[in-house]
Amino acid sequence: MSDTVERRAHRGEHRELPDGPQRQAIELKTDRRAAGPYAVLTAEERLTMLADLAALPG
């Protein structure tokens, strides 16, 4: 992923990437970074968090 794309993401600028190597790299990086926090949650906490996320607008 390019530094430009990462800077845009940090500033809150979003655009949908088509399927391909760049999107795959971003998805894998996101999964790796999220694994730690998810691992410490109980099953009930994960379900609560998912329900809260699903309730967000947009």
Rank of each mutant, 00 (worst) to 15 (best):
V40N: 03
I26C: 05
L17Y: 08
D31P: 00
D52E: 14
R11S: 14
P57Q: 04
P37E: 03
M1S: 13
D31Q: 09
L50H: 12
G36Q: 05
L47M: 14
G58N: 01
R32V: 02
E27R: 15
M49P: 00
D31H: 03
P37Q: 01
A25F: 06
G20Y: 05
D31S: 06
Q22M: 12
A51R: 14
E27N: 11
H14I: 11
L28K: 06
V5Y: 03
H14C: 09
R11V: 06
Y38G: 01
A51H: 11
A34Q: 08
L47N: 14
D52R: 13
A54L: 14
Q24T: 12
A35C: 01
D52Q: 15
E44N: 05
K29R: 15
A34H: 01
A9E: 10
P37G: 02
M49N: 09
L17D: 01
A43P: 05
Q22F: 04
P37R: 02
R11G: 09
R46E: 08
P21L: 03
R32E: 06
M49K: 12
R32Q: 09
Y38R: 08
A39V: 01
A25Y: 07
A39T: 05
R7E: 15
E27K: 12
A51P: 02
R46M: 08
L41F: 02
D3A: 15
T30C: 02
L50W: 10
Y38V: 03
M49Q: 11
L41Q: 01
P37C: 00
R11P: 01
R8T: 03
R32A: 07
Q22C: 07
M1Y: 07
E44S: 10
A25L: 14
T30Q: 06
E44C: 00
R8I: 01
A51Y: 11
T42Y: 04
R33G: 00
I26K: 02
A9C: 08
L41A: 00
T42E: 05
G58Q: 02
A39C: 03
A43G: 04
A9N: 08
H10C: 06
P18Q: 13
A9T: 08
L53D: 03
L28M: 01
G12H: 06
A39Q: 09
T30Y: 01
H10N: 11
E16S: 10
P18K: 14
L56P: 01
G12K: 05
E27F: 07
E13K: 15
R46P: 01
E16D: 09
M1V: 11
G20A: 07
E13V: 15
P18C: 07
L28W: 00
A35R: 09
V40P: 00
P57G: 05
A54C: 10
T42C: 04
Y38N: 04
D52L: 13
R15A: 13
L17W: 02
G12L: 05
K29G: 09
P57K: 06
E27V: 15
P37H: 00
L17I: 06
T4Y: 12
K29D: 14
Q22K: 11
R7D: 14
I26R: 04
T48L: 14
H14A: 12
E6P: 01
R8D: 13
K29Q: 11
